[in-house]
Nucleic acid binder design. Structure first.
Ligand SMILES: [Mn+2]
Ligand SMILES: [Mn+2]
Ligand SMILES: [Zn+2]
Ligand SMILES: [Zn+2]
Lengths: 143, 143
DNA sequence: AATTCTATTTGGAATAGTTCCAATTCCTAC
DNA sequence: GTAGGAATTGGAACTATTCCAAATAGAATT
């Protein structure tokens, strides 16, 4: 029983809990995101998925992604107005967008820091969601 | 000498410094953003600007906004994939997007907090930009 | 097992914010 | 005043995403 099997059992369970059907399309889209966790765009996911299922439609990929987000299995990552990316890392974390390569890296954020951020809000403001993102470069260290 | 005059002198100065011309279109777009600092969208800015200058084109508004951002006079504010908004508040701050009203509110962020955020980055990562945004609701307090 | 009912998928059209482009107009420098 | 570059303009093009109506698949019921 490999990790992919585990993940897809979790997927089926979560979908069923939400009253949705664990379809093969949803499974293959979810696996595509898991296989290389580099915050792929919809196009990238579509390309990966087509290798397994060449007949899947782009509309279905969009539908599956929306479903997976609603079930809380993946997160949408938006940067400026660039095409939406997706992230299977469910821990609270921030994103670093490397200007040079275009890559997006996860940045760990302690829960305590999240609390500090929430504390910035005026009384009465309740944040359902906090997004923290960095943009910049990565210096190469010479040894 | 009202504040609008002051702001527009600053605008002209900044544009000239950048080797750009202080045109009437750029001035009227900038004033439109300052007049009601509610993070207006391009459409809203276009509507405001047309009252002063009914002949201005949408393309020019887009051009002016890009110029003003490049000069550092305003900031782009993106939320998910909603239409871009603009903000003349040049202090480092976060944004709170009210789900109920769609309004965007500025949230003050102490410089010390910004430093803590930067400190989350691994060695070698240099953030040219940090974006922090909240989404949620505002509770009404009874008295 | 056939039928029914609904969820899901599918291909293509439509949408919308934004960008691009070529032509005109406007400034500035000479 | 003329020349040259900057800025503006209207409209076309672009593109990520959403919408839609028809086809398909799957679960439930008889
Ligand atoms: Mn994408
Ligand atoms: Mn906008
Ligand atoms: Zn991530
Ligand atoms: Zn702001």
């Amino acid at each position: 029983m490999n990790s992919s099997t585990v993940n897809c059992e979790a997927l089926a369970k979560r979908l069923t809990q939400s009253g949705l059907r664990p379809t093969v399309q949803r499974e293959v889209v979810y696996k595509a995101i898991l296989e290389k966790r580099n915050h792929p765009s919809t196009d990238e996911i579509f390309a990966r998925v087509r290798e397994q299922m060449p007949t899947i439609s782009l509309a279905t990929v969009y539908n599956c992604l929306e479903t997976l987000v609603q079930c809380g299995l993946i997160k949408q990552v938006n940067f400026e107005r660039a095409p939406t990316r997706y992230c299977p890392n469910l821990y609270e974390h921030a994103h670093f967008h490397d200007d040079a390569t275009g890559e997006v890296h996860d940045i760990a954020v302690p829960a305590e820091m999240m609390d500090r951020l929430r504390a910035l809000l005026p009384p009465g403001y309740k944040a359902a969601n906090i997004e923290l993102s960095f943009r910049g470069g990565v210096m190469h260290t010479r040894n």
